[in-house]
């Protein structure tokens, strides 16, 4: 297993996973996944439906904890620190590892309250002015400030799908996470909104370690620097995006990207 070392460049190793196993009851959903995810770049997980890529993504902020009879084994370290160690509080971890979901899911509250929610529950702002500043900065980074600055009191659910997803990204950014997990963030959006989100993701990698799951190989090719290919619960191949798409080393990867399996 040398895949995790292939592909140089980018930042330092942010997340390192070793021999991760995930069971849903009797179903062994993910086996022996070892991967190093680097900071300040976009890592894409691709693979056919049910291959375990979303499952693995949800291990990285312990969202799988909320699913009953889901068992995670192995070792996942964020900055060298075991995130499944008993002293790690998942609530705290999820503030450091933000997540954006497949379907835009703003709270049925105002745009302002959506973004302010994270900072509020974690006590990141001392006063209203500071909170206003966090909200504005997050909305700017989410590339949606110009569209909503005049109607921060409007419900987040009144926005269009693409705007909602950017709002959700802004909401995730507001807690100043180190890692941003995105679970197929564009699959419910039209091509124009998708292009906007992709542009935003490219912008975000300057500050964050971005990990995204995607169904679209073109999207992985467009926005990611490194790509991991999952198949039947296993990590088949992991490397630089260019290399995966042009010169895959595993025949299964080749079959998938040329459209023969999937």
């Amino acid at each position: 297993m040398t895949q995790q070392e292939t592909g140089a460049g980018g930042g330092e190793i942010k997340i390192s996973a070793r021999d991760v196993q995930v069971h849903y009851g009797d179903n062994h959903a993910l086996r022996d996944v070892s991967v190093d995810i680097r900071d300040k770049m976009v890592t894409a997980f691709i693979g056919p439906s049910g291959c375990g890529k979303s499952t693995f993504l949800r291990c990285l902020n312990r969202m799988n904890d909320t699913i009953e009879d889901c068992r995670v084994e192995g070792d996942i370290r964020l900055d060298g620190e075991d995130i499944y160690a008993p002293e790690v509080d998942p609530v705290h971890l999820r503030a450091r590892v933000g997540m954006v979901f497949q379907k835009p899911n703003p709270f049925p509250k105002s745009i302002y309250d959506n973004v302010a929610y994270g900072p509020r529950i974690h006590g990141l702002a001392k006063n209203k002015a500071e909170l206003d500043e966090i909200v504005e900065k997050s909305l700017r980074r989410g590339a949606i400030w110009d569209e909503v600055k005049d109607r921060l009191d409007a419900p987040g659910t009144s926005l269009s799908g693409g705007q909602q997803q950017r709002l959700c990204i802004a909401r995730a950014i507001a807690t100043s996470p180190e890692v941003l997990l995105m679970d197929e963030p564009c699959s419910a959006l039209d091509p124009i909104a998708t292009a906007q989100i992709e542009e935003l993701i490219d912008e975000l990698r300057r500050q964050f370690c971005v990990v995204m799951v995607t169904h679209s190989m073109q999207q992985a090719a467009r926005v990611s620097q490194r790509t991991a290919f999952f198949h039947l619960g296993q990590l088949v191949e992991y490397g630089e995006t260019g290399q995966i798409f042009t010169n895959p080393s595993d025949p299964r990867t080749e079959s998938y990207i040329t459209g023969r399996i999937g």
Binding site: T66, M99, N105, Y117, I121
Partner: peptide, 27 residues
């Protein structure tokens, strides 16, 4: 209550109780 709302709040680091009383119960 749609699970997406729970996930959204959990993903931001809300505790179980905050999710229930802040989001699920009002809805």
């Amino acid at each position: 209550v749609p699970p997406s709302i729970r996930e959204a709040a959990l993903g931001l680091g809300a505790s179980r109780q905050q999710v229930v009383f802040g989001h699920v119960l009002p809805l």
